[in-house]
């Protein structure tokens, strides 16, 4: 079962702001097969969260989405109406958010909120829905699941709430799960547990998983494929092995230097950092968006940047032919 579940081609997200337009996502493409995990990596403002919201059709009314192709299991998401989109959401594609503390409705019990996800898409009895909810709560590692159903969100810890969010995403057995920084707001020990849980569930249920994160440590642990985003573009994409063993784009290399490697980084040795800030995304950007911060920048970087493909489908956008240079 290696069929493609999601195809994104030339996706753009534009946010109108007063005088101009903020081009938050600038023509990105990727695809995802069942059972695969794609990690979208980038710093704040790189457009990675908006990309995931765009796929789910959850952008606000003012925000404009456009794509040459946006297909979910052969269905054109750009062409279907809001009702059909809603029918897909929560049923075949589900989302887990960054803030477990505020992502559950404080007025309803955990049980109500879990069952709602099922009732919206399936005809099931209340008892049947609750039974399913208890099963899933057990599956995401929540003990005494039955009594949890009657609890309110404020009675649970952040880690438990994120597990509830995951169980809620799983209620209708979706084929695609998008997790937007699911571990950022959690303690480090809980982060590891949640990641392991996501990886296990993915394997068990043959899910396609998109994980949006800025944490390369997370990526290394879970990703099959990686897309590195910078200023609304995917600057490098490939398998996890390609990206980690052979980073091509100067930005990806910069990111790699920012994380300590056990055994390699000596105590007291300064970690790398990338100087400068992300350019303004209002209006168009000529040439490479990273050139102001790039150590390899030359005059050529002002011109249109070619997309290069190295061996094994490893893609990156850079004026310099870094990957072949290295091979040569």
């Amino acid at each position: 079962m290696a069929d493609t579940i999601l195809t994104v081609e030339d996706l753009t997200v534009d946010i109108p702001i007063g005088a101009g337009t903020l081009h938050a996502v600038r023509g990105i493409s990727f695809d995802l097969k069942r059972g695969e995990t794609l990690c979208i990596v980038g710093e704040s403002g790189s457009g990675k969260s908006l990309t995931s919201l765009a796929v789910m059709g959850l952008l606000g009314k003012r925000i404009k989405r456009d794509a040459a192709k946006l297909e979910f299991d052969g269905k054109d998401l750009a062409a279907i109406g809001p009702n059909e989109m809603r029918a897909l959401r929560g049923d075949r594609m589900a989302m887990i958010f960054q803030e477990p503390m505020t992502s559950l409705n404080p007025a309803y019990t955990i049980g109500d909120q879990l069952c709602e996800a099922l009732h919206l898409h399936r005809k099931v009895s209340k008892a049947g829905a609750e039974k399913h909810a208890v099963e899933l709560l057990g599956k995401v590692g929540i003990t005494a699941a039955e009594s949890r159903l009657k609890q309110y969100p404020h009675q649970l810890s952040g880690g438990l709430r994120q597990r509830v969010m995951i169980a809620m995403a799983l209620m209708c057995e979706p084929e695609l799960i998008i997790a937007d920084e699911p571990t950022t707001a959690l303690d480090v020990t809980i982060q590891a547990q949640i990641l392991r849980l996501l990886a296990d569930l993915k394997r068990e249920m043959n899910l396609a998983l998109i994980l949006v994160t800025h944490d390369l440590g997370v990526v290394a642990r879970i990703a099959d494929k990686v897309a590195v985003m910078y200023a609304g573009e995917i600057v490098e994409a490939g398998t996890a092995a390609q990206i980690f063993d052979n980073p091509a784009h100067p930005y990806t290399r910069g990111l790699m230097r920012c994380i300590p490697v056990p055994g390699k980084t000596k105590p007291g040795e300064p970690l790398g950092s990338i100087p400068g800030i992300v350019p303004s995304l209002v209006g168009g950007i000529e040439g490479c968006a990273f050139r102001e911060r790039c150590e390899l920048a030359t005059a050529a970087c002002r011109k249109t940047v070619p997309e290069r493909t190295a061996k094994g489908g490893h893609r990156y956008r850079c004026v310099h032919d870094i990957a072949s240079a290295k091979v040569a």
């Binding site: 007063g18 903020l22 704040s44 908006l50 995304l281």
Partner: peptide
């Protein structure tokens, strides 16, 4: 996430 600034703040 993106923060869209209000038009007046810039001016």
């Amino acid at each position: 996430m993106m923060t869209s600034s209000a038009p007046t703040t810039e001016s």
